[in-house]
Amino acid sequence: MNSPTRTPQTLVVLGVVFAGLALNFLLGSPNPSAPPRIPLVDTNFLDTSTVRRSYADLARAKEDLSDFDCYVCHEKGKAPTLRFDTNQNLIIPKEHADVVMGHGSHGRNNNCFNCHNETNLEFLQSRDGRQLKFSDSPQLCGSCHGPTYRDWEAGVHGRITGYWKRDLGEFQRKQCVNCHNPHSPRFPGRPPAPGPHPLHWNGTEAGESPAHPHS
């Protein structure tokens, strides 16, 4: 500001700059580069319930157990006859159409009475001859799957919910049939939850995130 004529000129220039900025901020859109909204995740993916419900769950919740009343249809004291096709595959009667025989490979485990008690259908029959209630099914599974049963007992195979510190609260060990269908035990596939969205929005479609800065 050496020359007195320069001062007003500088002030005018600065004033114009500020006025321009002010106009820009007042009239312009508040945040032009805002990324699109990421939809909230479906609450089904937050559900902690098991894949299936066991007999024990249904009994505890006092729900309909009529599926387990075998002698509404079957005759007491008389073993049902099993029929097989020419390939030695079990022919499933239409009353049991929901049963998919898929336990063990090569169709070798195709006899209902490998696990169900032949003379009392409301019980299970383990390989070592014990009669077991439907609610005690893990012992039946354990009579063939020993190492897995040992892991399950230790809480290492399968699901546990509740308290890791047992003296502070209850914990629940889920049964084999909470995850595995006993007739077809392979764990079913399921649709995955939505993948990550890019943190820095760069115009790509959701799901095509740019490379991670560290990679």
Partner: peptide
């Protein structure tokens, strides 16, 4: 507080 973490509780495969 003695409970399991949320990621463990929700894991369908254990």
């Amino acid at each position: 507080a003695g409970r399991y973490p949320a990621c463990l509780e929700v894991c369908p495969a254990g």
